[in-house]
């Protein structure tokens, strides 16, 4: 029987767990499965040589101009690094293991830079979500005022507003607060490290 060449794996990592995600990808690569594409909670691997590549996650703001992004991608290419996947602001980098590691072992600066990118990404995401909620609520208010004659529509709008409000609050507390806390702990630890050893 022919050996399977492509594998699709579903995994969920929160944005604060990028180190675990990286570790997972590198473990797969050591076993001979090389990442070729990334989607939402989805990783596609192709069989290759064991330990041929190493992987790293990086972030590039999607709001960055194409020129900035292109110049960074060109720079990575010049450094022997390939962008194998992109999802949201994350980019998945691949490098030949024989060309040495991505980072110095204890490069606090590089780590801080990465946490900061993730931190600002999560802030941006929350701001965008809040903006969407605000628009929804505004539309509902408008609808309620315009359709005040119709009791059922007005009631629906009131209920929907309450739902959106409470829903977004719960989503913030359950999803966002733990992520921010985790990132903050990472930042604090790195700042302590810098006091001793840059």
């Amino acid at each position: 029987m022919e050996k399977k060449e492509i594998r699709k794996i579903w995994r969920f990592y929160s944005i604060a767990d990028y180190e675990k995600e990286e570790a997972f990808l590198n473990e797969m690569a050591r076993a001979g499965w090389n990442l070729t594409a990334v989607g939402f909670c989805q990783y596609i691997f192709r069989r290759g040589n064991e330990g041929e590549y190493i992987y790293k996650l990086d972030m590039v703001e999607r709001t960055e101009s194409d020129q900035v992004k292109e110049s960074y991608f060109n720079f990575l290419t010049d450094c022997g690094i390939r962008v194998v996947g992109e999802f949201k602001d994350w980019i998945y980098l691949q490098k030949r293991a024989s060309e040495g590691p991505f980072d110095m072992k204890n490069d606090t600066y590089a780590k801080l830079r990465q946490v900061n990118k993730v931190y600002s990404f999560s802030l941006r995401t929350v701001c965008n979500l809040l903006r969407i909620f605000a628009v929804i609520v505004l539309v509902l208010i408008l609808l309620q005022v315009l359709m005040s004659a119709n009791v059922r529509v007005a009631e629906f709008c009131g209920g929907a507003m309450l739902g959106v409000g409470i829903g977004s609050l719960i989503a913030l507390v359950i999803i966002w607060v733990p992520i921010v806390n985790k990132l903050r702990r990472k930042v604090n630890k790195l700042i302590d490290d810098i006091g001793v050893n840059l």
């Binding site: 990086d58 720079f75 450094c79 980072d103 110095m104 490069d107 590089a110």
Partner: peptide, 11 residues
Amino acid sequence: RVRLSAGTLYG
């Protein structure tokens, strides 16, 4: 001993 990562160097 000192290996610059692409990200560090770029920044």
